[in-house]
Nucleic acid binder design. Sequence first.
DNA 1: TGCGTGTATTTTGTATTCAATCTTACTAAA
DNA 2: TTTAGTAAGATTGAATACAAAATACACGCA
Lengths: 224, 224
Amino acid sequence: MTENLTLQMDDYLPLRDVVFNTLREAILKGELKPGERLMEMHLATKLGVSRTPIREAIRMLEQEGLAVTIPRKGAQVAKMTEKDLQDVLEVRDALDALAVVCACERMTDAQFVELKEAMKAFENATHTDDVRKIVETDEAFHDVIYAAAANPKLENIISSAREQMYRYRYEYVKNPSVYAQLIAEHRAIIEGFNRRDVEYLKSIMHTHLSNQINAVRVVIREQV
Amino acid sequence: MTENLTLQMDDYLPLRDVVFNTLREAILKGELKPGERLMEMHLATKLGVSRTPIREAIRMLEQEGLAVTIPRKGAQVAKMTEKDLQDVLEVRDALDALAVVCACERMTDAQFVELKEAMKAFENATHTDDVRKIVETDEAFHDVIYAAAANPKLENIISSAREQMYRYRYEYVKNPSVYAQLIAEHRAIIEGFNRRDVEYLKSIMHTHLSNQINAVRVVIREQV
DNA sequence: TGCGTGTATTTTGTATTCAATCTTACTAAA
DNA sequence: TTTAGTAAGATTGAATACAAAATACACGCA
C-alpha cells in the first residue's frame, strides 16, 4: 500500500522534466541538429504541452550546455567550434584521470564484474550494425567506471562534459574500422583495473579520448 | 549613435537573468541560507516581477547546483553534506591542477602583471575587516589564473564547482588568523608562475584547497 | 536589379489564470 | 493528551493571455 504510494510519487514527473529529457535525448541522438532553432510554440504543439514547461526545459538545457539562447531571438541547439571541442577534451581528460584514480581505489568486486559484463555487451554490440546500441554500450561501460569512482559530483560534471561532444560522435562510431581499437582499449582498461595500475589506466584513458578528437573534429568541420 | 543602439542591446537582460543573478548572489553571500525555501510568490513580490521569470531562474539555479527542487513542494537552497564537500573538493583539486598547467603554458605577461596586482589587492583587503572585500579579492586572484588557462569550458565548470562551496566559506575567511597563510600561498603561486614550475604550482594549489576543507567542514556540520 | 521602408506575421518575454497538490490548523474521538 | 480526519489556505504546475520585439515579405523607388 504505502509502497504503491511512494511509487506513484516517484512516478510523477513534472512536464518540464519530461520535456527536458525528451529534448536532451533528441539533441544527443542528433534528431535535433546543432544550430537548429528551438521554437517554443512549435515544440509545445509537437509535444502536446504549453509553452511554460518548454521554456523551463530550455533553461535547463542551456545550463547543461546543450542549448544557447539569444534574448528575444530564442534558443538553438548549441554548436561546438573546434576550440570548444579542444577545451572540453582538456577538461574531460583531467576528469577521466580523476575518475580512474578514484575508481581504482574504490571499485568493488561486484563493480569489476559489472565492468567485464559491460565490456562483453559492447563487444557483442560491435558485431551488429546497430550504431545506437554500440554507442549505448560504450557509454554504459564508462558509466560503470564513473559509478565506481563513488563521486556523484564528478559523475554529474563528466556526464555534462560528455554530452557536449557525444552528439558529434555518432559519425565516428558508424565507422566499423574503429571497433577493433575501441575493444582493445576497453580490454586494456579492464586489465588496468585488474592490476590496479593507476598510471597505466590514466594513459589508456588519455589515448582512448584522444582517438576521438580527430573524428569528432571532422564532424564539427562539416557543420555549417 | 549606433553605439548607443548596440549599448542598449547589450544592456537588455531578460528578467529571468536578473532574477537568476540576484538569487545567485544572495545564496553565495549567505543572505539565502542553505535549506531556506525559495517560494515563488514570495520572491516574485519581493523582486517586483511575476512568477514566470522566478521559475525560470530557479531552473537555472537548480542546474548550477545552488538549488534543489522537490516536485510539488518547491525549491530550496541546496545544502551540502560533508560527502558532497569531499566530492566537490576532489573535483576542484583536479580542475585546479589542470588550470595551473594550462595557465602556466598560456599566461601572457599582461596577465602575470594582473595576477600580481590581484595579489596586492587581496593583501590590502586583508588589512581591512571587510570580509566581503576579502572574499572578492581572493576570488579575483584565482579568476586571473582561470582566465589565463584560456579555456572557457574549464572556467565555467570550475566556477560552478566553486560556487557550491564558496557560500560556506565566509565563516572561514572571517577568521583573521588565516590571512597570513593565504597571503603566503598566493605569493607562492606567483613565484610558481614566475618560475613556470608546474609541479610546484600543482602542489601549492592542492595545499591551498586542502586548507579550506576543515574550515568549511565545520560550517557544514553546524547546518541543521 | 538592388536597396530601403513599412507593414504583417511570428516569436519571445512576462503576467495572469486555473487546477492540482500540499500544509496547516482545527475538530472530534479514543 | 494524543491521534485521525477534514476543511481552508497556501503553494506549485501548467495553460492561457497579452505586450514587445524580431523577422519576413511585399512594395516602391532609384
